[in-house]
Design a protein around this nucleic acid. Structure first.
Lengths: 121, 121
DNA sequence: TCAATACTACAACAATAATTGAAATATTCA
DNA sequence: TGAATATTTCAATTATTGTTGTAGTATTGA
């Protein structure tokens, strides 16, 4: 993972609104939610929500799919696992006995979403 | 974990400099590094580094310990695991078959640092 | 086609964060 | 004690983000 990708992800989750959106969408897994549902659930004006959804999507944390006149958003959970792997690269380097299973944070929910470029229907 | 704690952690890691600092300190595990070593390794002016170290420490990502006239910093890795758990609370709720082992991102490196309040000597 | 709906893009302003240099504090060692 | 070192605090400047309203695009269904 590129450093810029990582900082963009962290930046995305550093806003209370965006963190709420991401956590909400994690709860809705494969189903996801359309923008209007997110806005009313979290009580954020649509204009403002759109701004935050764009940031999350550009960071890769959300996948968006058009559904008639709705935009359906879903959380990209595998990206979070990549991020964790990036953070812990060379964790405790040279002292493996100190650093056993951090990286076993493996592939959960990889089946929730297909790769980001081709969201499920 | 409180939402504000989580956003503070993400905010901390949304700066390239701070991300470099945290990753560097993860690599140095239990040993940690003193501020001057971090500054020269990453080529950041001490004044600026101090600003970023303070942010990381306030977020709980770093523990600091005075060592004569040096300040030794160490990464708080367990906090990252708490953060991951917070993110994935209720992940895919109601559909456990979709969400198996994300939370098995368990307790690596818990022995690197004692709880943040009492840094190792 | 026309009105209604869902959402986004743009522009302006307000709020917040990053960087720097100068000065302050605290520790070491001669 | 006094000079040197390590780091932080403060204040000023610059840069970046967040929020809101208005206007725009795209889809639906009468």
């Amino acid at each position: 993972m590129e450093k810029q990708t990582a900082t963009q992800i962290f930046e995305s989750l550093s806003s209370g609104i965006r963190l709420d959106v991401y956590r909400l969408l994690i709860r809705f897994g494969k189903t996801g939610l359309v923008a209007g549902e997110i806005a009313s659930t979290l009580n954020v004006p649509p204009t403002n929500l759109s701004f935050h959804l764009k940031a999350l999507t550009q960071a890769g944390l959300l996948a968006v799919e058009q559904e008639g006149r709705f935009q359906r958003y879903r959380a990209n959970i595998p990206l979070m696992l990549d991020l964790i792997a990036y953070l812990t690269e060379e964790c405790c380097s040279g002292r493996p006995e100190e650093c056993a299973d951090f990286r076993s944070a493996s592939s959960c929910c990889n089946d929730i979403l297909p790769p980001l470029s081709t969201p499920s229907t």
